[in-house]
Each structure stands twice: as structure tokens, then as C-alpha cells.
Design a protein around this nucleic acid. Structure first.
Lengths: 220, 220, 220, 220
DNA sequence: CATGAATGAGTTTTCATTCAT
DNA sequence: CATGAATGAAAACTCATTCAT
């Protein structure tokens, strides 16, 4: 059932194989339902070896999260040229994000769903990555306002809320794109870009929506 | 330890108590980590009674999802007056949504996190609810376009993507509002409304963002 | 293999059966080598029931120690009439001690060997019992000196050392009597009584042994 | 962590290092809880080398017992001058015993506690040493009687019991001295010597204690 | 209607021990 | 002489689930 048995691999290689199998298993079964037995069998080694190298189920899961979080942020970073205008950076970043999550659905499940539902330790690990991304998006919003020669009059919390909403929408679309046939990473990015950038533009022209009267006080 | 022991309740009442305890436990511990023992103790009855009424852990979980999904959609529906303009309906719906999720964090955790990570059966149950909400939002977008006397020229999938993004952003903000002190349901709704409605407005005026040239082909 | 299967016992009874089996197993195999499986099988129940009632291997072991320590001190107390002279009390106490340890060799092994070699928690539990006995013996030595109208001039630490030596000798003889055929509890008690009481008598007459010169300084 | 890594030691040296580490580990953790991993790491070699030299955990433990038993008897022998009077020999032997056990607490733990609780094989090994010591003490008692020109009328079993009690008391005091601050080997030896020798003296004058008549004279 | 008593099947984890180099 | 890579076997512990009353 498992991979082809190729004995006596160097430790570094085996560890990566173990992380591969673990990401796959955790992503598909969920953290609690995944069994160390299954992971070991998927690698084609015995359980004690997994414990020797990765220490415990918790540590193994944490190692998965760390590796995949870094891979994701690295992919986004690699897709973005910080010399370009803010809108272009956001566009490129979104494409990289959707591409990566589409290519690594199990990893995305681990980061987006599993890591957040099994204890502070894991949630914190993934929250750090998320904050990095939110900070990046926040930065882009501010830069965009400056580039547009608009008065970046948005209060700090509002910008944070916007970035949060944008990232949340992206995360949601990533899952949606993963399960909806015919929706490519590029399309998901375009949808979100259209949605978000236009909205940001309007916001920065000082025309927020309001229920009847203005909602400034609602945010402030 | 658990609830006050009051014997001989009618079955319907006991069942609701069981669901209450189960939602709380599933929401806080997660589906796998929650134990039937804990739930039974929380209700103050013996485990066999839980099994007699709710049949199995799976069925109990499914019942939780069903009840809470209906409660959430009911809350949103109750908050919306379909006689009002679309933007007002969206605003009211968002407020109702954020209010309900803030008041029932365990239920929201069950719906948003737990139900999605433990098998098709549960995911499907919650997906139905989500689709209902997405359909409602899609409907509002279309109505809004009509109200604005714009040519509702948006291709179907694009509208779906927008609604998806909007709902995803809302879900993300719900979690954010739950953990960020000082962010009320009203504020979360306002942030999202500003963000989304403006964006939709721009879209409907036919000014989508494009990486350099238009991205129509990216969506089409 | 195990005891006759008699199902559905009340909890209190089962718990005692479990402690019986545990004492036997811990006493014969040692704490680490004893397996919960073996204990459960000896009782004729499944492991989960043992865990349900006694919680963990550690707790089970601690419960054994507590029960057997109390049984031993109770046996000694029951054998002694505090209205009699000190020497008679010591004699009776020793007989009760040797009798009890001879009749419950596994319990004695648990208390004397196992409890002392597997962590502070257990050592402390048995040390409490031992201190009670040492205190009793110390008390008897002091009373004996008073009864003999001698000047009880023994410094406190010396008395403690004597009591310690006496108890240590008793513990050692208990093991010896258990494995030496033909040595009864009475004989063991007599041997120790002769040995100890005479020695104490001499000590109290102020004639300690000394290597060449007096050894007062060695004790002081 | 472990010893300094100095490669390519002759086998004899390595074996001693291994025994050192093993005694330390077995003494502190206990036989079952000690792991070959820990021992190997403490020596700074790989586990296979430990197996190559010492064969198995059992053999390693047995080797520890043998070495430490011999070291202890050698220490006692070295402390005694068989040309001196019996009481002096006992005194010197006790001092040597307490000194050695105080200086090698792990070794003493291995001999006194661990070896006795993990199977006949090890118990037998240590029993041999113990018998040697008991025989030595028995011999001293007989010699002492002869030196005192008393009729050594003590039946053989009684002498054996006395020696056993003496050795047992010594063993017990060794542990006591190890954990009681301010009690030196010399003091422990003096306490026991006072206790024992006086008692023996009285015994040999033909005045044993008895449970029937009053004991005033037994004390007097 | 309700429960105390009980378990089969599984989980994570550890350890003494051995190859292949 | 020495080791990195690897494992079979068993341990403690948990849990959803059921029977007998």
C-alpha cells in the first residue's frame, strides 16, 4: 500500500518523506483522526523510526505546519516584485497564493483548518504566518493610497479590518477554487482583485456605504 | 459538575439539553477530542440515555450541525426585511450574522471549523446552509444591479465568485471579531459593507481592475 | 487463566479484587515489569475497567501502597496492648509485624522494595508509615529507660539511630524469615528481641562499646 | 551531554566506562526504567558497541552487580585487619562498609534495591555477596565468644539470626545515613556497634530476654 | 425511563535489539 | 572498531458502544 520500499535512506531524506506523508494524512483525515500507523506505512517505514526522527504526533504536526507555512509564504514572496506598483504586487501575490494552495491542497487544509482547531500551540504557529500576510496586505493598502495621491485617512483599525477581510476572502476562495471545477488560480485572483481593489478605491475616495446615515461612528 | 440534576424530563427537553452540551463540547474540544462521557456528564445523565436518544456520536454531531445551521440561517432571515432595498438587506443580514456568531461562538466553531474537517457527511450538511446564504447574497447582488438600473452584465460565475468572496470575508471577520477586543458585530458588519458594497458598485459601473489590460478573459 | 469469571460485581468489591491482584503482581514482578494487562486478567476483567476504577498504573500502585501500609500498621497496633510494659509491647509488636509480613509477602515486597524504588511519590507514602513505626519504637525505648529508672541520657539522634537500626533489622529479618524454611515469626521476633533489648539495656547502663578509647565524640 | 568523546579506547577501558554509566543509570532510574540508549549516550558510544561488549541489558546489569559486589567486599576486607580482636574487626568492617556505601550510593542502590527486585538471577548474585558478609559476621561472633572465654552456647540458627539482624540493621542504616544530613559513616558505625555489641555481650552472658518473666532484670 | 457495569478495538509511545556499511 | 538506520513487540491508556437490571 505504501510507497515503494527503498531501504536505508539518509535521515534528512526520510524526514522529508515523513513530513510529506504526514501533511497528506493530516490534511485528508484531520489531526485527530490521522494515525501514526498510517503515516508510517505511507512512508514505508516502521513507527519507531517516525518517533525517532520526529519525536511525537504533536511535534510531527508542528513540523508540518512550520514547513508548509514557510513554503506558502515563500511562494507568495517569490511571486511578488516589490519594485512594482502596489496593485500589481497584490495581483501577483494573490495569484501566487491561489496557485500554491491549489497545488498543495493537503498543505492548505493543514494550515487553514487543522492547525486552527487543535490547540494554541498550532494555532499560534499558523497565526504568525497569517499575520505576516495580513501585514503585507496592510502595507499594500497604505502604499496604494499614497500612490493614488489620496489622503490615506483610513484609521488604523479600519485598515486592519480591510486587510483581514481581504485575506479572509482569499482563504475562502482558495477552498472554493479547490473544489469548484473550472476555476483556476488566475480566475480566483481576478475575482478577488476586482472585488477588493475597486472597493478600496471607492473607500479611498471617501465614499463609504452607510445604512442610512454615515457609519463613521460604527468603525471609529 | 454538570447541569443541576433534575430527573424525569420529557424527552424533547432532554434532547435539547444534550444538543446544548454537545455543541459546547464539540465547539471547544473539537469533534474527535470531545468524548461522549464528557457530554453525558455535562447534561447530568448516563451515557446509555444519550445513545438511546441520539443514537451515536456521529448522529449527535450531525444533529448539532443541523440545529445550529438552522438557528443561524433563521437568525439572519429574521434580521432581514425583504421589502427594503438590497444594500439595506445585506447590511442587516451581515449584522445579524455577526451578532449571532458572536453570541454562539461554540456553535460557530462547530459549523465553521468542525463540520468541515470530519468527513463528507458533515461537510455536506453545512455546505447546504452555506449555499443558502451564498444564494441569498447572489440574489442581493443581482437585485442591487437592477435597482441601480445598471446592465447586470456580470457573468454568472463571476457573481458566484463575488458572493463566495463576500461570504468568505464575512466568515473570516466573524472569527476575527470574536478574538479582537473592541470589535463589535456592528463594526465588523460596517467594515465588510464598506469594503464590499463599494467594490460591487465599481464593478457594476464596468470598471474592473486589470493587471495591465482588462482581465475579462481571465474570468470568462 | 485468571480467577473464576463472576460478572457484574459491585464496584467496591471489584476494586478490592483489583488491589489484591495488583499487590500480588507488583510484589512478584516489580512495579515496572508488572503490566496492567496481567493485573486485569488476574481479576478476570478487561483493562478499561481497571482504568475506570483506579485511574492509572501510578494511582493503582499508590492505592496498593496505601492499603497495605494501613493493613500493616493496623496489624501491629492490634497486636500491642499499650497498657503493658514497654518490653512486652515491643515483643508483641515484633511478633505481629513478622506474622503479618509472613502472611502477606507480596504486600511486604510492595512496601519494602517496590515502593522505595519508583519515585518520590511512593517512597513518601511508605516513609510516612515507616516513620510511624520508628516513632513507636523510639517511644518504647524512652519509656523503657524510664521504667528501668535509668537516666534516659541518650541524645535524641542516638535514640533515632537505635530505632532506625532496630526497625531496619526487623525489616531485614522479615525477608530472611520469609525465605528461610523453619524460621517462624515467633523465632524471628525472639532473635531480634534478644539482640535488641539486651543491647539497649547495656547502653542504658552507660557502657557503650568503643574502638579503643570511648567513642562519645563519634556520636555527639 | 555524556562523557567527553575520546575515540578509540582499548576495550577494557571502554567496558569499565560502560559499567560506570550503567551503575549510575541503574542506580538512579532503576533497572527497568533505565534505557540502553541513555547508558550508551552517557558513555559517548553507540548502542551497538555496548551490545558488542556487554551482550544484553541483562548481562550488563549482571556485570554491574558482580563488579560492585566485589568492590564492596573488597573495601570491607581492606578495612579489616584479621590479626586484631573481633570487636575491633567488626568496628573496622562496619566503618569500611558505611564509608563505601556512602561514597558509591548508586552502586549501593544497585546492590541493595535493584538487584533484589528483578529476578532470581540477579538476586542470587547479590545473595552470594551478602552470605559472604553474613559469614564473616557470624565468624566474628563466634570468635568474640571464644575471646570472652564464654561458653559459645548459642545454637547455630540463633547465631545466624543474629548475624542476619546485624547485617540487616547495617544495610538499613546505610540508607538512613545516606539521606540524613549530618550522619557520617563513622557515626552510623558507632551507633550500630554500640547497639549490637552490647547486645551480643549480654546474650553471651546467658541473659536472654524472655516474654514471660518481668523484664526489669533483663534491662538491668 | 434510566443506569451501573463492562468491553473490543484502537491510540500513542517506548525499548531492547539488530543489520548493513 | 564503530555506527547510522531500522524494527518487532509490547506497554499504558482511551473511547464509542452495549448489556443486564
Amino acid at each position: 500500500m505504501g510507497a515503494v520500499k527503498s531501504k536505508r535512506m539518509p535521515r534528512a531524506v526520510r524526514e522529508q518523506q515523513m513530513l510529506d506523508a504526514a501533511v497528506r494524512t493530516f490534511g485528508q483525515r484531520g489531526y485527530m483522526a490521522a494515525s501514526m500507523d498510517e503515516i508510517a506505512e505511507l512512508v514505508g517505514v516502521s513507527k519507531p523510526l517516525v518517533y525517532l526522527y520526529l519525536n511525537s504526533k504533536e511535534d510531527l504536526f508542528a513540523a508540518c505546519i512550520r514547513r508548509e507555512a514557510q513554503a506558502l509564504t515563500a511562494a507568495v514572496r517569490a511571486g511578488v516584485d516589490t519594485g512594482l506598483p502596489a496593485d500589481r504586487q497584490l495581483w501577483d501575490g494573490l495569484r501566487a497564493f491561489f496557485t500554491h494552495t491549489a497545488q498543495h491542497p493537503d498543505a492548505w487544509s493543514v494550515l487553514h483548518l487543522q492547525a486552527r482547531t487543535h490547540g494554541e500551540r498550532f494555532a499560534a504557529e499558523v497565526a504568525a504566518m497569517r499575520e505576516e500576510i495580513v501585514a503585507f496586505v496592510t502595507h499594500l493598502i497604505v502604499v496604494a493610497a499614497r500612490e493614488a495621491h489620496r489622503d490615506p485617512d483610513l484609521p488604523e483599525r479600519e485598515v486592519a479590518g480591510l486587510a483581514e477581510a481581504l485575506v479572509g476572502a482569499a482563504e475562502s476562495l482558495a477552498a472554493w477554487a479547490n473544489v469548484t471545477p473550472g476555476v483556476s488560480a488566475r480566475q480566483a485572483a481576478a475575482t478577488l482583485m476586482n472585488f477588493a481593489w475597486a472597493g478600496l478605491g471607492n473607500l479611498m475616495t471617501g465614499q463609504p456605504w452607510s445604512p442610512a446615515e454615515p457609519v463613521h461612528e460604527a468603525i471609529g
